[in-house]
Design a protein around this nucleic acid. Structure first.
Lengths: 223, 223
DNA sequence: TAGATTGTTAATCGATTAACAATC
DNA sequence: TAGATTGTTAATCGATTAACAATC
């Protein structure tokens, strides 16, 4: 009995423990399931099978069932998973229940496209302000959000408890803007430029790289 | 001798064989090294160590040296890797030497931002045409590229040997445009909308998902 | 020479997959 | 009942890491 219990206490089970972080891989995969689930919910889908999730995420269906069953019995045999409740469960696991305030820097074409879209709002990220150095843009609204002058940055970040800053500026000014965001207290920088950014160790940079994703896809097409 | 040879013929070595595909993981990591290297080259950097690459990619430095040494001895002990030659080596491995023609669908804010940036050109992807359903936009130029009417799509894809289509359109029209691209012969669809796309099995969809990347980064910030 | 960094080994850990009983 | 799909096992494979000799 005791022996069995010990043997069965695998890494999978450890993911359940409150004090433990998910592994990088599990967290990344859960995030992708969530993306598909939220979109499926929008389309009015009520249940989804691990096989369907596999088609959209390119993750093996056994892997998906395994990931999910590590946290509870969310599915119904012969039926699949309820989209609604699975969204909630994964949100709980990823601690992304509720809203997170973010700021957007850069109100050019890219900034406007981001502000006008649902891509962040659908996942619980609310853009509380756009910043731009161009005084002509200050006061304008894109989507629901107003463009502020750079002088407001520190105040907004503090008052609205902003942890994430999104950079939609040219490569040439990306480092300066990142420094400013970090100075204001932002801990996660999402970089849409190509610039390699230097930040303190307690700050995370994520650089968007569509061309890299394409290279990768192309390799498997060519071979 | 024979025994040793067999034992040493590991998965790592197999990556070298001409006929064999890279594993998904290796191809993904090589693509990321390439992204950093190209940017480092732009900044005038001549050599780079595995440690520096690790800082920018969040990939363990031993893993990087291991990945690279599987294909040859590219580095110099005590010095690092020459940025120039490593770019060329990885391009050879990923078979991304030379140019690839791509088309962009959608000339709104996002499409304009993409067309005006270097993000694709820097990695050897040339945007040969932008398409839009809005007749008022046809004939305009963004970056170096002209906006075409949708009627030209099939001809351009065939004449310019286009394999990749980038979708910068609203979710509501994404599936229709994807169908049209696939019909014209495109094999890789890069989807900037949130729409889940259905495509034939020989076509690959890659959906950009900044919010998912943020969720993931935020999880590790919160824990 | 002294310091730095690669290339490689060896050990561990997590991911992947097929298969199938359980059960809706 | 019959069909579908989960939850789980067991086996394999690839990723990860520390450590260090080789060598620039």
């Amino acid at each position: 009995m005791t022996e069995n219990a010990a043997v069965e206490d695998t890494a999978q089970d450890l993911a359940l423990a409150d004090g433990d972080r998910l592994s990088l891989g599990v967290a990344a995969r859960l995030s992708r399931y969530l993306q598909v689930l939220i979109q499926a919910r929008k389309m009015g889908k009520e249940t989804i099978s691990s096989q369907e999730l596999a088609e959209y995420t390119h993750i093996n269906s056994t892997q998906i069932r395994r990931d999910l069953s590590g946290f509870g019995k969310f599915g119904k045999r012969g039926v699949g998973y309820r989209v609604d409740s699975l969204v909630e469960q994964i949100r709980k696991i990823l601690r992304s229940v509720g809203q997170h305030n973010i700021v957007l820097f850069g109100a050019g074409n890219l900034g406007q496209a981001i502000a006008s879209s649902d891509i962040f709002a659908d996942h619980g990220f609310q853009i509380v302000a756009i910043f731009d150095v161009d005084a002509k843009l200050v006061g304008k609204r894109f989507g629901e959000v107003e463009v502020h002058g750079v002088a407001d940055l520190e105040r907004v970040v503090e008052e609205q408890d902003v942890v994430v800053g999104v950079l939609a500026v040219p490569s040439s000014s990306a480092q300066d803007v990142a420094d400013r965001l970090v100075g204001a207290g932002v801990k996660i920088v999402f970089n849409y430029s190509e610039q390699l950014l230097r930040v303190p160790p307690d700050v995370t940079v994520h650089t968007s790289s569509p061309a890299v994703d394409l290279l990768y896809a192309l390799y498997f097409y060519l071979t």
